[in-house]
Design a protein around this nucleic acid. Structure first.
Lengths: 201, 201
DNA sequence: TTCTTTTTATGGCGGCCACTCAAAAAAAAC
DNA sequence: GTTTTTTTTGAGTGGCCGCCATAAAAAGAA
């Protein structure tokens, strides 16, 4: 009936994730968005509505991918704690690898820090996404506890927040000019923190 | 011989710290700067040169204050490790207190994440400041080691980076909508991490 | 071909951006 | 009071901001 779009919406969104993750919300102009998506203003606004909505969709997509990444990683481990430990180390390794990802720090954290006091809607979105991640970590840790990997007295939600805090710190540190070795050491040291909560046995 | 300035440069700089810490570099317009400093454009540019230079001076001042804060806190403790632990908890407490500081996250980290890939000079400044802080932590930990508080085999610089990473994570988490209790628990959990490195005795 | 529908390219909207400058105002020196 | 020197003022700079209207172009459906 009609002319089909020449762009692929998903591909475009992926490119938007790249730009926004790299430069942040305020740091990315619509001119740069046009360039990154290889789309003209009309098409962009028809497809996504506004810069805000595009960013919001990009953040949601980033979140989804990050969640899938965690899930697929954990699927390879019978021990939850070992899985989480190697996840931290994997992050450190990925971050210290030669530049391929748009940024090393987490896009959600970047948004949280940038949008607070500046852009309420995005701040709220980052906030709720982080709550969801806290929930996911909590569920994982409760499973570990059921499997006898964690001390029965461990407060899993509290430990989940510690884990999340460590992850934020690790990926923020990755934006510094550290060597690969130093970053991987940091990943190891953070993963070692979990040892403290392990069940005796 | 001449008319003296009606503003106090130090006071103005202090106000600039407040605004930039609160809203970030891209999030603060010169209009807002004028309002915050209660100065007109001409005076601002005469006194500070440019938005960039003003931000840079503000970041330097923030850094200096943060350093003094750490030093004065540590002065109250004979045990370095105890001092650092209570410092983490103090940060958690301060961050969870009713809004008084312009932001909860660290201004240096906010700048690091915002300015990377966007504003090279500011990124470099944040980076070097963080190196200096790493050095300061290293020196403190080496002192602790000399005092027999840390295992002789502890790599102090490496532990300093872990400490810095924790701090970054803690203060980033503080930007989330957590309760005071939850944040203080996080501060405690992070300070507990240092236990692992304590000397047996 | 003709009709629809949607994407393109383009030019430009009002507004805010960081920044400048000339003139007015203010305070010390004499 | 006059001069000298500096600060303050605020309108104004060009330029980019996010966004939109228009119209030409493109591609299926009939």
């Amino acid at each position: 009936m009609s002319r089909p779009p020449s762009y692929d919406r998903e591909t475009a969104l992926e490119k938007a994730v790249g730009l926004f993750w790299h430069k942040g919300y305020h740091g990315s102009s619509m001119k740069q968005v046009e360039q990154a998506l290889d789309m003209r203003p009309g098409s962009i606004y028809a497809a996504f509505g506004s810069k805000d909505e595009l960013f919001s969709e990009a953040l949601a997509r980033y979140t989804k991918e990050a969640g899938e990444d965690l899930a697929s990683h954990m699927a390879g481990y019978a021990s939850v704690i070992e899985g989480l430990q190697s996840f931290l180390q994997k992050i450190a390794r990925d971050c210290s690898a030669s530049e391929q990802a748009p940024a090393r720090a987490c896009m959600i954290v970047k948004t949280l820090l940038e949008a607070n006091n500046t852009h309420g809607a995005l701040y709220a979105q980052a906030n709720s996404v982080l709550s969801a991640i806290e929930d996911a970590f909590t569920a994982l840790l409760e499973k570990a506890q059921r499997q006898g990997e964690l001390t029965p007295r461990t407060d899993c939600r509290r430990l989940a927040r510690l884990l999340q805090g460590q992850l934020m710190g690790l990926r923020s540190m990755a934006e510094r000019n550290l060597s690969a070795t130093e970053l991987e050491q940091l990943g190891q040291d953070m993963s070692a923190v979990l040892e403290r909560y392990r069940a005796e046995n």
